[in-house]
Every structure is written in structure tokens, then in C-alpha cells.
Amino acid sequence: MSDIALAPRRACTTEARPLRAALIALAFAGLGLLVFAPLALVFGHALSDGWAASVAALRQPDALSAIRLTLLITALTIPLNAGFGIAAAWFVTRFEFRGKALLITLIDLPFSVSPVVAGLCIVLLFGANSAMGGWLVAHDMTVVFALPGILLATVFVTFPFVARELIPVMIEQGRAEEEAALTLGAGGWRVFRTVTLPNIRWALIYGVLLCTARAMGEFGAVAVVSGKIRGQTATMPITIEMLYNEYLSTAAFSMAALLTVFALLTLLVKTLLEIRHSDQLAAMRRH
């Protein structure tokens, strides 16, 4: 019975079988050429001289220092970004004020600014020949070509990630639950911890994952502000560039493979989250 009813329904709301097959093949071919082939190549090139050579390249002091720096920058960026994202989402969705649209635009702005321009802005603001840079030099603090500059560049390029994931979810959730908790006498922090946080946790994790991937891999903005000092301000992506330009292919691709493993890990966690919590995440995807 249901088969008879479904047969014409399927026929008129899908494409002919050959066309479907062709479109699926095209999807595989496109992603194969653009995504799968480069991915396979990274690991192939990294291991072309064997595991030992790869591991040895990664254990060079400069390589270790780059790995440490990248992990440090990422570890500092995540709480800054998550803290800002939560504060911004709370501010934007729980209060009515003038200029809200402008504020959201400013939060989104780093999406559409070239990373190189972002780096340039930081150099112009804190560089040795700017007003603020001169003051900093006089007080023995360096931002550009040092850790604070790299951190600021990374925070800039990842700026909207957490806030953008949280805002739509918090708009959808509304204020009723929090207002109820407040009327029942809960304090602000308690409301946030016991009412808001459980509601937004998936969106928060999702935003943090995006932020992590980008923070580890940022190149353009960091390339401009880091000064590329080997063993000091060279992050993993910067080290990849330097090794590649010196024709040290195995070393460059080994570092690239390690960075790819980090990226794939964030992707894996994200995919697992999507499979296990598809309901909660479906609500967030709508933006």
C-alpha cells in the first residue's frame, strides 16, 4: 500500500537516476581534486623519507619551539575568544540598546578583512614608529614581532567565531527561562551557570572548535606581525613556509602533516558532536 502511494511521490520530487548518479560523481570528483587529493599528498610527502625522518624533523629545536608557540597562542586565544563571545552574546541578546546593529557589524568585521590587512593594522598601531609603539618601546614592551602581537592578530582573525555561534541560539532561546530563575531568587551568576550555559553549551563548543582550528592555522596575519624570528616568533604555519622556501620538503610537509592532524581532530570532534547531538545543532545551523 505505502509502496504504491510512495512511488509517484518519489518520481516527481527527485531527479532521474542517471542524473542523480552524475551529480553524485561530480560531487566526489570536485571534492576529490580539491580536498582529498591535497590531504593525501600532505601525508604522502611527509612520510616519503620514512617515519624516522619525519619525526626527526619535528624534533629539531626550532620545530619544537614552533609547536610550543602555536599551542600556547591557541591556548591563550580560546579563553579570550570564548569569554568575549559569551559576553557579547549576552549583551546583544539580553538587552535592548541603540547601535546594536552597528555593534554586530563590528564583531563580524574581521570575517571580511584580509588577514594581511589585519596584521598591517596591528603593525601600524603598535609598530616602533607609531605613537603607541613609541610609548611601549619607552616602557620596554614589545607587541610587534613578539608574542602579544601574534596573540592580538590571532584574536582578531578568530574574533567573531564564538559570538556568531551563540547569538542566534540565545535569540531563539529567549529570556523567559532566565527571567523565571531571577524571579525565583537566583543571582546573576547562578542563572548563567544553571540556566544559560546548559542551553548554549553545544553552540559554545562548536564556536570554540572553529576558533581553535583557525587559531592554530592562521598564517597571513601572523606572518605580518611575527617578524618570523626562528625559534622565537615563528609559529607552525610560519615554520612550514620557511622550510618550504628552503626546499626542505620532508621537514615542511612533516610539520604540515602534524598541523593537519590537529585540524582533523577538531573536525572529528565537530562531526561526532553533529552525529550525537543533531537536534540541538540543527537549530544553530539556521543562519
Partner: peptide, 25 residues
């Protein structure tokens, strides 16, 4: 608004937007 945290969330948001986006640009 009866919602708590106006000063804190607004303060963090505006300070971060100013330092990270407005000042550099």
C-alpha cells in the same frame, strides 16, 4: 531590564571590540 550583567557583559564587549577591531582599523 531586569537582566543582570549589563555592566559586565557590555564592558567586556565594548572593551574587546575597541581593542581588537576599532583601534587597529
Amino acid at each position: 531590564s531586569a537582566m543582570p550583567g549589563l555592566g559586565l557583559s557590555g564592558g567586556i564587549t565594548l572593551a574587546m571590540v575597541s581593542m581588537v577591531v576599532l583601534l587597529p582599523i
